[in-house]
Amino acid sequence: MLRIDCPFCGLRDETEFTYGGDASRTRPPLDETRAEVWNDYVYQRPNPKGLHSEYWFHQHGCRSWLKITRDMVSHEITAVAYAKDTGE
């Protein structure tokens, strides 16, 4: 079981969170019209066998979307931050 150290709520079990998937991607600007750019954003996943940047939503807590760095093999979490603060 993962435990995520929510920057607001503190250390909580994974059951309070909803997984939001890969966070290495950046949503293209709304006025981006090239389909291939959107296609990459929506479908392609680096899916590394190592450190993975990913979003988690603290559904049963402060409802913050968090950006987390986690090892996909050991599940060790090395960084947690508000997604809001880590954007471009």
Partner: peptide, 18 residues
Amino acid sequence: GNSSHVAAMAGLTLPIET
């Protein structure tokens, strides 16, 4: 389970999560 990992060695990114 390792498709992305092996494909990455060939320079391919796949529409896959493990």
